[in-house]
Design a protein around this nucleic acid. Sequence first.
DNA 1: CGGAACGTTGAGCATAATCAACGACTGTGG
DNA 2: CCACAGTCGTTGATTATGCTCAACGTTCCG
Lengths: 235, 235
Amino acid sequence: MSGFPQRCLDCLVRDTALCSSMDDQELATLSEIGRRRVVHAGAVVNWAGDASTSCANVVSGALKLTASTADGREQIVGLLYPGDFVGQIFTDQTSLTITSLVDTDLCVFPRAGFERVLDEHPRMERMLLERTMASLQEAQGRMLSLGRKSTRERVASFLLEVADRTGSRDETGTIRVHVPISRGEMADYLGMTIETVSRQLTLFKTAGAITYARGDRDCTILDRGHLEAIAFPDR
Amino acid sequence: MSGFPQRCLDCLVRDTALCSSMDDQELATLSEIGRRRVVHAGAVVNWAGDASTSCANVVSGALKLTASTADGREQIVGLLYPGDFVGQIFTDQTSLTITSLVDTDLCVFPRAGFERVLDEHPRMERMLLERTMASLQEAQGRMLSLGRKSTRERVASFLLEVADRTGSRDETGTIRVHVPISRGEMADYLGMTIETVSRQLTLFKTAGAITYARGDRDCTILDRGHLEAIAFPDR
DNA sequence: CGGAACGTTGAGCATAATCAACGACTGTGG
DNA sequence: CCACAGTCGTTGATTATGCTCAACGTTCCG
């Protein structure tokens, strides 16, 4: 079957990634230039400053995007999940370091080829535009958090954010949440130190709003209202 | 002369705004739906939460984009200058308050009409995509600043930023800078208080890196290297 | 068993916020 | 013309938030 993208047929993100803007016919052109790549946990996919030669869709797993100062301070500026697009196109140099948080599958495209496909597929370009705008809006919310919220508010917001993305609610109203990152990464995401993250979590646990086993990345939200009241103070 | 956009002919941003992606012919369709609007200093152009019914190009002047918490804390998430595009398209509700910093001319389009023009003009859509990506990258840099830099570093970076955008250098190497915003707005931009901004500026003045008349928005950078060393510490 | 990585907790400290007072400048009204 | 209030910026004193430094417990591996 000529050019029919076998690999794409059973792809986990066929209907959520940028590919979902293409029909099976169109997908052939994209499929031709894409290659699957497995990235093991903790590996750096791209260093800030590298030439921008490729981009990708996240198929499974998770990535973090970090910006850093010359003296080594780090800020996580984004977390990416299956279906998300990664890469800095239309520019020759990257500004972010990309690291996998867990074993991750990528569908990688050479940048030049991807840009050519984009030229010819307005629906995909539109989808990318909408997603870029959504990322920008998310970034604006995070600027508000980083600039104006207390550490307590930021930790509470973060837990709710993760709960909304991946949490599963049981019949008693408790929400099981898997926090995909370490304390250190939470700190880098929230613009604070490991110690402060740990202390704030302990305070929430003491207050009965959450529980978790010591050092564990699984967390149960017992009192969502409590966290919401802290994350979004009305006055 | 059929549909030839008279108003656009002598437009100050004909060659820098999104319009620069269109030839005179194409511009007619955009011109038809655009209307000039003058916004006086301090006026709110849009409140966060309003329906997203229009968008615009900044023709002259300057705008600030602010995000805020329910209890009134504000963070400036962007400053817009002539040639910049304003508005949240592809979404029905706005999330940002837009305020003019000085008397500002806008070229306003109804959102629906603008989106239709975008559908039909891939070069303009591409330009908007590139600009949105640039805004996102800028936002990522600001997340790093807000999350990981000291107030001193942030104020120094800000002065350099403004100098690079609008500063004029004279023969002795000093740079005249007009800071387009009040101390309060600098604080909102940099995620700190008015008092801290003032103190950091005083420190730079005392150190001989800058001068300014008390309370003035015009500032002279005497020692760019000093500010750079503070803004970008190497170790 | 030893070491490394990670998380927690405590003590002390520094940075920046808060609270307060004051000076300079602007525009208004007497 | 001056008195006045209002806004904005500066400066000082005090407080609190969150960082730094340090110690220690746990878990996971070799």
